[in-house]
Design a protein around this nucleic acid. Sequence first.
DNA 1: CATCTAGTTTCACTCAATGAAACTTAGATT
DNA 2: AATCTAAGTTTCATTGAGTGAAACTAGATG
Lengths: 258, 258
Amino acid sequence: MDQSSRVAKASEDGKSNVRAVERALDILLCFTTDSDLPMTEIAEKVGLHKSTVHRMLATLEDRGFLERDRSSERYRLGMRIWELSAHRSRSGDPAVICLPEMEKLRDTLGETVSLYVRDGSERIRIQAVQSNQAIRRVAPVGVRLPLYVGASSKVLIAFAEPSLAEQMMSSESLPPGIDPQGFRDQLDEIRRNGYATSLEEREPGAAAVSAPVFDLSGRLAAALSVSGPAGRFTPDIIREQSALVIQSATRMGSMLPG
Amino acid sequence: MDQSSRVAKASEDGKSNVRAVERALDILLCFTTDSDLPMTEIAEKVGLHKSTVHRMLATLEDRGFLERDRSSERYRLGMRIWELSAHRSRSGDPAVICLPEMEKLRDTLGETVSLYVRDGSERIRIQAVQSNQAIRRVAPVGVRLPLYVGASSKVLIAFAEPSLAEQMMSSESLPPGIDPQGFRDQLDEIRRNGYATSLEEREPGAAAVSAPVFDLSGRLAAALSVSGPAGRFTPDIIREQSALVIQSATRMGSMLPG
DNA sequence: CATCTAGTTTCACTCAATGAAACTTAGATT
DNA sequence: AATCTAAGTTTCATTGAGTGAAACTAGATG
């Protein structure tokens, strides 16, 4: 029976998933890009028929995962998302625990401070406190960024479990335009130094210094980053900053349960 | 299993919903009570067969809505929940906008300050800052509470659109043990005073003062509450507090877009 | 080793999810 | 008003996706 025609509908990867649920979740994920959407647009985005989407939306709304603006008829995320995330953070959420320490660091350095975690082959900014200087990096919380550029990316790879770090590099998942050996050397150096830097890697004009945060069981929990306009990140300054960032990251780690 | 007479499977209300999705969402909602669960327990909670739950969990995990602790095998909420809620809060989220004002109020009164919104016939504590006195109310963010007891509940009903307030009271949705006319009078008084109080209504030993927060378009957005041990809430003190709570609530409202 | 309990996979049956199409608005355009 | 167009909603026949019993595996516990 398995031998029969394999259709491979873009989501067939061995796992036996529930199609209707997959679709519903994909609908929810539309709202990571847009904060509110009309039904038709959602249908287009996920490539499903109106009626199907309509039924899905009804269900999602019924359970409070979506709600619709009563005047515009557009859908947006509902209370339940809120509620769930609040419960998620109850126990030892780095984003909450590290916030005070991040604010301290921001105050001493005067630059925007961000906290990233790895999720699959991406990273997410789970917390940020903004610099209060006139010229500053603006760093919204919750965004997903690629894992191959930026100081914190390199930290998240360099200090991951060795197996994972290897797999992440060696495989052809490495994007084109990156020299494997050069990258490997870079990671080695980062491991020796205990911190990573980036100069205009992802965004032109932006620079960053990042250090790993290890939880009490010694596992990499997050990457702490200080970032700002490249002009304010001279080699001398970076040297000073890196020490402080590492220090903060260590202190944070000591507050994170294994 | 299913007796013919007593069906009422909690989903038969005229709406045409997708069953598989309903079930998946119900599984997610398990995590509002427990922060991590093993598969079997989830299956019990939602009343579904192991294999069904197994497939659902696989799907939810695949899309990052759940993740499993690699050592304990237990499931917990995943990154995507986080990510979604972060996007939800992007635009004018009261919980974020009101926080500074809430902290100020906490500092002047020295009591725990909470912010509630109505969701259907319940209310959710969307933000809280804790008193720093030795004896204080502990108010976790994200919890759901009933709409019929507590100062903030009464505010959320009294200042809702009249139609809604009526429907919420007159219908037989009113829990037993509450006198309709007495309750109505109470609401009228609250509307006149501009604030509500509660003494040991929900929790023995706890008292609260609450005032409505109206957004710029004049609609009720939230209820701001100060709460603490009943002993610290004498009539005199309440009189002072209520003025300050109303003042804070007004200031908050002026920062909330319509 | 036998005996649990928790998780995973298989498979035949069938009911629930689906999409085309019809229908209902609501807003523009004439 | 009459007519068009786009967005949302409901209906319904078809069928394959989702289901649950049961078999199976892996770990613990006695």
